[in-house]
């Protein structure tokens, strides 16, 4: 896996367990027995950035967030 460029974060209060992030990012997220996402790896590698961005865009409750270590414009 490529180097970490930031972290993913899920607001557990906003999350309603739609499970889209778990489908898009099985490398970092497991769905629990009720369908709620459990972050298994916090660090976001560069090669998963596109999927993470997609999860962020598609999350119906805006619970999923990509937190880049540095602003994207600087890299």
């Amino acid at each position: 896996m490529s180097r970490s460029i930031g972290k993913i974060s899920i607001n557990p209060i906003a999350c309603d367990g739609h499970g889209i992030c778990g489908e898009l990012l099985p490398e970092l997220i497991q769905l629990d027995e009720w369908g709620y996402p459990k972050v298994t790896k916090n660090d976001l590698p560069l090669d998963l950035l596109e999927h993470a961005r997609r999860a962020e865009r598609l999350c119906p409750t805006l619970a999923f967030m990509v937190l880049l270590a540095e602003p994207a414009t600087q890299r």
């Binding site: 557990p12 209060i13 999350c15 367990g17 629990d32 009720w34 369908g35 709620y36 459990k38």
Partner: peptide, 9 residues
């Protein structure tokens, strides 16, 4: 009643 792992678990 806000977080799934809590109100399910």
């Amino acid at each position: 009643g806000q977080c799934g792992p809590c109100f399910n678990g």
